[in-house]
Design a protein around this nucleic acid. Sequence first.
DNA 1: TTATCGATGGTA
DNA 2: ACCATCGATAAA
Length: 193
Amino acid sequence: MRLPVSFYARPALTVARELLGTHLVFEQGGRRRVGRIVETEAYVGGHDLACHASKGRTPRTEVLFGPPGRAYVYLIYGMYHCFNVVTDQEGVGSAVLVRAVEPVEGLPGDVRTDGPGRLCRALGLTLAHNRWDLQDAALHLTRGEPVPEARVERGPRIGVDYAGEWALEPYRLWIRGSQHVSRPPVRRRRERP
DNA sequence: TTATCGATGGTA
DNA sequence: ACCATCGATAAA
């Protein structure tokens, strides 16, 4: 049930695809929160100028080069967190950013989990969870209903314009039609009251 | 509806 | 100085 290390020990783009539909589980203070992953982004290695690993090995990026199946959580704009899973072989600085989940368990029905910052806030993920092993009973991923290829949509990654050509690569993946994807490609029409 | 702007702190 | 974001506000 829990995704094994072999799941993560593949190229980031492959993991980003396979992560769609899986469940992100985080337990803290006796509270269990679960979200179904509906949107991801692959950061494929040190040669990928959008990937933090392109800055080289630093105290912050070291975890990206470490063994697969660990959490990479960082602080962005001083107030939000982004949750990634480290992928590929040890020595390859790559990861997959989880950009949105659909509430499954332990989350108020009205809480927003679309967007990397919002989902971390909703689940309670912070810098304290950086470098955690994703085999941890309190933080891991589990299998979900497989998502057929026809339901997978791809496009450029968000917020990485500084990365030049790399910003154009279609490394953002999401489940077509999900109401929980951040910045839907087809502008969500307002529900009629 | 889209566009702009500022909060806020780790990292280098 | 920069930043893999968000939410408030303004403009239209």
